[in-house]
Design a protein around this nucleic acid. Structure first.
Lengths: 205, 205
DNA sequence: GTCTATAGCCAGATAGAC
DNA sequence: GTCTATCTGGCTATAGAC
């Protein structure tokens, strides 16, 4: 009987490293801390991943890999625009609720070291805007939505979905929300964001 | 003749520390690096600020102090809502263009250590949503805007203005923008964001 | 106030037994 | 594969001359 994925050491380390790196960043994390979290000792970390940098890279690559497909889905599926916008927020927010540290982690490290994006050959993996652009042009010609650039709409969709997770500490204070209040606000956004965007771009008859 | 603000040592250190901390974060920054940037030696940093933590705190407090008044302006000035929304983006984006590392820095550190917000007694300095709420209620009753919660509108305004600066590395790649292209996109948003929001909340006659 | 030199600590990495 | 013990370098912080 082979060990399950959760039980083997390499995976235990990755899971522990994920938790620690995502909360503290590359420089804030300690190898000892990760070892403790994984229930093993420091030497084993180096046995499996050679160095802190390489362990970090493994965690970071996996994190990007979790966020990218969701974006691709928004941009390049064949569903109608309204359907996609109505469902992207629900999917994305549900996903981020399970991984609340992810946006802060990914964007902080990307800003610190943008060459991650090139280095990992993500240009080829990351989707472009061509699909969305075609879809928008069509709807604009039909007079169904106002003229809007795919770039700006895309930036808005991502902003509205992701920023609340990054800005949570500040937003909680300004909106005077308890933890439960804020969770409710986020939950509400699963439909609120889509309505807001559709209102903004739909041509009223 | 007294030294100008820019020339005195304490201020040279603060400016240098700001640049380094904002790019690398508390743990990524090195005291030696800050000393070099300020054109002095490490010992002087400790002479003026005692420790790395205290120097960091000085920089961070100042950073928060730069962002908060802009938010207060949005929430608690007496101007009409449409005027405020139309001008907040222009002001905020102009400001962030001059301090592009600020959002990433502030929100990363707030997530790492949310007690900064309480510790600095910012609850009293940070504005609440009461003013905006009253303004919205009035407009809703008059039938000029759709029913919308002040909390959600506030989160949206902040998201649309701030996120592009945090997400820049990713957004540049996905939108296939050069540095100049992306700057143009941001510039465009000074008016685009306001139009987008007003479209979303205005009741069409 | 500003400098050089150094103390003291801590974290990443390795050696080597089992 | 997994452990304990240890090396090594680098970083914050301080001592002390000027």
């Amino acid at each position: 009987m082979v060990k399950t994925k959760e039980e083997n050491t390499e995976n235990k380390i990755l899971e522990a490293a994920k938790r620690i790196f995502q909360q503290k960043g590359l420089f804030g994390a300690r190898m000892q801390e990760i070892a403790d979290e994984a229930g093993i000792n420091k030497a084993l970390l180096h046995y499996y991943f050679r160095s802190k940098d390489l362990l970090f890279e493994a965690v970071f690559t996996q994190a990007i890999g979790m966020m990218a497909p969701k974006i691709d889905n928004l941009l390049n599926s064949d569903m109608p625009l309204e359907y996609k916008i109505k469902h992207i927020s629900e999917q994305y927010i549900t996903f981020l609720n399970k991984h609340p540290y992810l946006p802060n982690f990914v964007f902080h490290e990307l800003n610190r070291n943008p060459k991650f994006l090139e280095k990992m050959a993500l240009q080829e993996k990351l989707p472009g805007l061509d699909g969305l652009k075609r879809q928008l042009d069509q709807l604009i010609v039909e007079g169904k939505i106002i003229p809007i650039s795919a770039e700006q709409l895309f930036i808005n969709i991502l902003s509205l979905n992701i920023f609340p997770f990054i800005g949570k500490p500040l937003l909680k204070v300004v909106t005077k929300s308890s933890e439960e209040d804020f969770e409710a606000l986020i939950e509400e956004r699963k439909v609120f964001i889509a309505d807001f965007i559709m209102n903004a771009i739909t041509v009223k008859s």
